[in-house]
Design a protein around this nucleic acid. Structure first.
Lengths: 376, 376
DNA sequence: GATCTCTCTGCAAACCTTTGCATTGAAGTA
DNA sequence: TACTTCAATGCAAAGGTTTGCAGAGAGATC
């Protein structure tokens, strides 16, 4: 029933190899023949069978996208951008949800490996060593995790956390809480590291609460601990938690930002809609999705997959790019942060006026932090 | 480099067909042999190549999910549920975003057809006739569109719109606006139809504004027209538009619900977070995703795909289920609706107290509205 | 007119599985 | 012992495509 290359060959009176070449190497076939074949193909509604093609070329023209939680609003813009970019390059995208489960991640990489040319691992929860091991099975690009020897797309949440802390310190806050993210999250560690350093530099105390599930509920549950910690400002691992915290504080009758200031990370679309509107560190998720796909496909075109090839014993060098891209973040100041108890008082060692918000450079032009090519 | 069935055969000293049977028909192989083969496979890390398998069995064990806009918060829960359900049944899921573009939908169905066992069309914008035509190329299940002869998963937005209008009328509103959705949307038509009828029955006037893009911006842009229309209540095509409208009204200094009541549709997670919290018609998106996958896979297992099969000339009947499932919706009353100008006044022909919110039955138990089996 | 070059096309193997049929050998029956 | 039955395995074709190699002409060069 489905129309194959053979049907087209019969209809246009040529051998199947000519039909094949019409699609995959048009310059090798006579223009007249070509138009005839194309006309027949069009007529019959022929579409090459990608699976059969993959069997021999070794390229599936599919990629895998492994996501911790599709329902977390952080991810859909990334998925959308990645899918769009992939499709522009004639790739299809498998999407799989791991429910924040490291074991599921591993299983999925295995299951998808034969069916894709590469996998995007978004905010993985696995160990670094496991990721490295898996990268020997299928080309991997990792988003939101730094890993030597592997292509990574990172968002500079360290810079973002620093800006956030400096913003809070500049507003006169000295007692700040950090709501940590989930265990195994590179982003969470990075935020913590940068926030600690920035707090120290600004002469503020940082109380870390967590790890927490990166959800609204996770934030909500920390409302009481936050209040009891006696802090006047909070930086949350992500917006979802910040929003949950906002709700929790509201339920406790704590006013934001009058009594406690709250900052999130991600700038998901909800953040403009809460009352008060959330101050947050915007992360370039769409750019990350695009960039990651580009890196994966770049890598993919570098590497010849067919085993057959080459004249007598010409060993083809397998090249792998391991560029790491760091995308800039931007502090977006809205209504959930306000003056703290030390507002207006001059402080030594800190820029008195407080630094302005960090402006993001053109997000379409990622900064390549480190790039190299390894031959193996 | 990748390990094939041949490697396993060599390692365990049997023919490749025995290895194949170990996986696909274990009862045909001697238990001792089986364990040996399985051990070797495990050792070598063998995974069957699904593409090669598909080539001969005709089943890819993949499905396609075509979505109007991944970034629209309505869809991620559906995607998540569908993917989860599919994976439970050992299927992988291609996700593709059409950007609300009918032409892209068609192109995607064609592109994916050979690579999947079926496609889920979510809230399609195509014409009915085109959908029918495409369904001859690949099994289709349609979500949010009613189509004779095709399996559909519908959400009873008609009932939801009716509940919403009755709720508003019960609160004393007589001048109500409806913010229409995008052209080509079955849901939008259905809401309009039901809302008109319900308004008429309740003795209220319904002003239709639209069609509109189903986005926040689309809702925001209607704030001024809504105010000028002189209505005291609005039902929006979806929550995103309702939220946009809330913002727009806020910007105009119109208080909700004191001056205008607003109702949305979908109950996306944001809706609990706006101020005021949004009254909305909850649609069972996750259940829809699960159900649609079940219907597709059900259909898939019914239909033998191999052309080869059967003894001399035994024509195998191709059976297709065309069951249509209608999932119930539920009006969730929050803070964006309040008393209207006619509050408390007795009205003839209407239940004075106003009907209570329509309660949703167990969303896990869809109601089969119509089902049949066609032999062709 | 013979030789060479070049373009276009056909042939057939290969990719990795599944599966109908044939073969083998052992156990059971008469 | 001769036969049948049955379970377990091997054989080879098939599925749709790509691609190295070789052949067939046509045109150019001497």
């Amino acid at each position: 029933m489905p129309v194959t290359i053979r049907d087209v060959a019969r209809a246009s009176g040529v051998h199947i190899s000519t039909v094949s070449r019409t699609f995959s190497a048009p310059h090798l076939v006579n223009p007249e023949t070509r138009v005839r074949v194309l006309a027949c193909a069009e007529d019959l509604g022929y579409r090459p069978n990608r699976a059969a093609r993959a069997l021999i070329t070794g390229r599936t023209h599919n990629i895998g996208l492994i996501i911790a939680d599709i329902a977390n609003p952080f991810f859909p813009p990334l998925i959308k951008a990645a899918e769009s970019q992939a499709r522009h390059r004639d790739y299809h995208v498998f999407v799989a949800d791991t429910n924040e489960d490291a074991a599921a991640e591993e299983e999925l990489v295995h299951a998808l490996a034969k069916q894709v040319d590469g996998v995007l691992l978004c905010s993985p929860r696995m160990s670094n060593s496991l990721i490295e091991q898996l990268s020997r099975e299928v080309p991997l690009v990792v988003v939101n995790r730094q890993l030597a020897g592997l292509p990574c797309v990172l968002m500079d949440v360290g810079q973002g956390a620093r800006s956030a802390i400096e913003h809070l310190a500049g507003l006169g806050h000295r007692e700040i809480a950090l709501l940590g993210g989930p265990r195994g999250s590179w982003t969470s560690r990075e935020i913590r590291r940068a926030a600690s350093a920035a707090a120290r530099a600004a002469g503020a105390d940082l109380t870390v609460l967590g790890p927490n599930p990166p959800t609204e509920t996770g934030g909500f549950a920390q409302a009481d601990p936050v209040r009891r910690a006696g802090v006047t400002a909070v930086l949350a691992y992500n917006d979802l938690m910040a929003i949950g915290l906002l709700e929790g504080l509201d339920a406790l009758g704590v006013r934001v930002p009058q009594e406690i200031s709250v900052v999130g990370v991600d700038d998901i679309s909800l953040s403009r809609l809460t009352r008060p509107k959330l101050t947050t560190v915007a992360t370039p998720t769409a750019a990350a999705g695009r960039t990651a796909v580009d890196m994966l496909l770049q890598q993919d075109t570098d590497v010849p997959r067919t085993a057959r090839g080459g004249g007598a014993g010409v060993a083809v060098g397998v090249r792998r790019t391991t560029a790491q891209v760091m995308l800039q973040t931007e502090l977006v100041i809205r209504d959930s942060t306000g003056p703290g108890p030390y507002a207006g008082r001059e402080r030594p060692g800190t820029a008195a006026a407080g630094p302005g918000p960090h402006r993001r450079a053109d997000p379409g032009n990622p900064i390549v932090a480190a790039g190299d090519v390894v031959a193996s």
